[in-house]
Amino acid sequence: MNTTLKYYLQIADNALILSHRLAENTSKGPFLEEDLAGANVALDLIGLAEAVYTEAAKMENQGQTADDLVYRREEKEFLNCLLSEQPNRDFAHLVTRQFLLDAFNYSYFIALTESKDPFLSAIAFKSLKEVTYHLRRSSEWMIRLGTGTEESKHRIQIAINTLWKFTPELFEESDADKAMLANGCGVNLSDIQQQWDQKVNEILFLGHLDIPKNKFSVRGGKEGIHTEHLGHLLAEMQFLPGKYPDAVW
């Protein structure tokens, strides 16, 4: 697989899988307004994923469509980071996962607007408005839960502690990251890490929350080695096109 295609799939898979996790929570939100707000974020992300998959599908020139990339790839072909596939567990986990990824996406898409790849810089520019809003919402929820009740503080801290081990992977350079950075189309992930650290420190400080000291980390998503959760997600998401290959929208 060429590195450009791989790079596109990393971006699209992250957006798709996170979007699907949010969609799973639709009708299970803590209250109506939050339910709708979460679905709105999911829709923004699926829009991003669809645009990138459509472009990626053209690359191999074998008549592939965006749907093929979403519904007819196996678990080990998905290149999303492990954090995006982590299950909803409770609202605190959902908010924390969202915040950690929004903070990443925000810096990442700002940097990607400078890409020499015109499609990537255009999609980054387009997504930035949405991502800026996502980060604002999830940051406020972190602070709100951190400074809310004893129960909300306890739960959000547990979520941070649980998900923290998946964050170093965000800044690890895959082959595609390296190649695209070298030809001016990609993003320097160590710059993103600095900005991410700063944002996360700021919000956790405001939320009276602790940054985990544990340096243990889990990785593999960018190479297609996933946690046990992705397989279950895909089984559900891909069921219908798997069973009825000729089904159309």
Partner: peptide, 20 residues
């Protein structure tokens, strides 16, 4: 009308429900 827990939450919920 909407439900919300504070000012920021209110303006965002209003945005997500009425101005999308």
């Amino acid at each position: 009308s909407i439900h919300a827990f504070d000012k920021d939450n209110a303006i965002e919920n209003a945005r997500d429900i009425y101005t999308r």
